[in-house]
């Protein structure tokens, strides 16, 4: 509730939940984030596309977990590493994006935002809605729709 109010007050800014995947910082628009949780008891799905990490029960809802490293074409995390998940909703279905480390909530003004550099890795460029220049590093804005939609496309191909 307070988030949307702040959003309303902050005309040209946006809040992001940040997360690190394979050393890269990503930002997910906070209005898309439903939950942040530690994924537990993943049920693997045979014959599924590789980026599908499995299914899990999040308070009575069945959530499809997406392995962000696989999705972005990065190498897999060492076995046994503890991961976190960011819960998002897309077209009425629940997804959990598996990330390495969850960050914080950042409020960023549009002034630091830039379009994708033209030499950005195509796999990341496809799901990126732009880049924010932070003091120490760069934050890639995740386009949740594209991220989940293109997974379908890849799968269909």
């Amino acid at each position: 509730m307070s988030v949307s109010e702040e959003n309303g007050q902050q005309e040209n800014g946006q809040e992001y939940v940040t997360a690190t995947v394979g050393g890269q910082l990503f930002g997910i628009p906070i209005n898309r984030v439903q939950d942040v949780f530690a994924p537990d008891r993943l049920t693997r799905v045979p014959l599924a596309p590789p980026e599908i990490a499995g299914l899990l029960n999040l308070r009575g809802r069945i959530v499809t977990a997406i392995d962000m490293r696989r999705r972005l074409g990065l190498e897999a995390l060492a076995a046994g590493s503890q991961r976190m998940a960011v819960g998002v909703e897309c077209r009425g279905e629940s997804y959990g994006l598996l990330i390495d480390v969850i960050g914080e909530v950042l409020k960023l003004s549009d002034s630091s935002r830039e379009d994708n550099p033209i030499n950005l890795d195509p796999e990341i460029a496809h799901v990126s809605a732009g880049v924010h220049r932070l003091d120490n590093e760069l934050l890639v804005i995740l386009d949740v729709e594209r991220l989940l939609e293109s997974a379908v496309r890849v799968e269909a191909a």
Binding site: L47, A48, E93, A151, V152, A156
Partner: peptide, 10 residues
């Protein structure tokens, strides 16, 4: 889930 609906085994 929509992503998994085309797996005929389930």
């Amino acid at each position: 889930s929509g992503k998994l609906r085309n797996i005929p085994m389930f």
